[in-house]
């Protein structure tokens, strides 16, 4: 009986949040999906908008595979994930492990975390400077090895990669902090037992640290994936998706459709595709954690 009354109260207290959620999340999402099936005159067009968007060179440009960038916003997002995700995880884990228990390690972690604290718009401006011909640290470094200086973000072959590597610097702080917290939760007994059994540092790392950090890895991977899929500000500020669409991404394409072409139906299609793609890659990760818990 008390449980039932409690659930009544729960519903009462949840109501404001549910209303907010319905108004500001569920309705806009539903409305976006709805208008993606209509043209600008409000006529139902079925999947025509989807066909138009998915066959446009802005989304997938197959000729780019023989010619070079651009390859299309969707492919660029996939490349972003393929490079950025493993680098973020490996760098984050490595730094967390290396800095654990090191004197001044927390200071270094704080410095690494600065990239996360910074607004991404500012991060984009910083990336522009980093890869600039005259001012950039990248050219200063490469110059030591005899490379000729250039503005990496203005060339089609290097624009996207510059953004990706620049964004690794901005996002790695997130994984470092999470892995550092995760490392603290692993009981010392495990390491001591492994040492007694004669396990070396590598074996300890691969057989104890990595498996026990799996839930953290899933969180890092999921959050990083979501960040990579909705990446917009860095690209908008640094290259605006150029040159020639060579660094365009899905979120930017959605913006271009909505606010430059003023075609909200096409923008809705890109938004729906992006959402489906996000679900497609994040659900398996979340499931794997749930299965582990069971």
């Amino acid at each position: 009986m008390p449980r039932k009354r409690g659930s009544k109260y729960a519903a009462f207290f949840l109501l404001p949040a549910l209303i907010m959620l319905a108004v500001f999340v569920i309705y806009p999402v539903g409305r976006t999906a709805y208008i993606s099936f209509f043209d600008e005159n409000g006529t139902f067009v079925g999947l025509k908008n989807y066909s138009k968007v998915l066959t446009s060179r802005e989304i997938i440009d197959l000729s780019g595979f023989s010619r070079g960038f651009p390859l299309g916003a969707l492919v660029h997002n996939i490349i972003w994930i393929a490079i950025h995700l493993p680098l973020t995880i490996i760098l984050g884990l490595s730094l967390a492990v290396l800095l654990k228990g090191v004197k001044g390690g927390s200071v270094i972690k704080s410095i690494v975390f600065l990239g996360m604290v910074m607004p991404m718009i500012v991060g984009g401006v910083m990336i522009n400077f980093m890869f600039d011909r005259n001012l950039g640290i990248v050219n200063a470094f490469l110059g030591l090895f005899g490379f000729q200086a250039k503005s990496w973000t203005v060339y089609p072959d290097s624009a996207l990669l510059s953004l990706i590597f620049g964004s690794v610097w901005l996002w790695t702080g997130f994984s470092v902090i999470l892995y550092s917290a995760g490392l603290e939760t692993i009981p010392k007994d495990y390491y001591e037992a492994a040492e007694l059994d004669g396990a070396g540092p590598w074996k300890t790392f691969t057989k104890i640290t990595i498996p026990l950090l799996k839930p953290i890895t899933v969180v890092v991977a999921t959050m990083t994936l979501l960040w990579e899929l909705k990446i917009f500000d860095i690209v908008y500020v640094t290259t605006a998706g150029g040159p020639g669409g060579a660094s365009n991404v899905m979120a930017l394409q959605m913006y271009i459709c909505a606010f430059r072409a003023l075609d909200f139906n096409r923008a809705a299609v890109v938004a729906v595709i992006l959402t489906l793609f996000t679900l497609l890659v994040s659900i398996p990760l979340v499931r794997s954690v749930r299965d582990d818990k069971r």
Binding site: P156, A240, G241, P243
Partner: peptide, 18 residues
Amino acid sequence: GGEFQTTFWDQLKLLWVS
């Protein structure tokens, strides 16, 4: 204006380096 303008600007950036 519109999408033409964005595309025009972006394609010229490509032309300038390629």
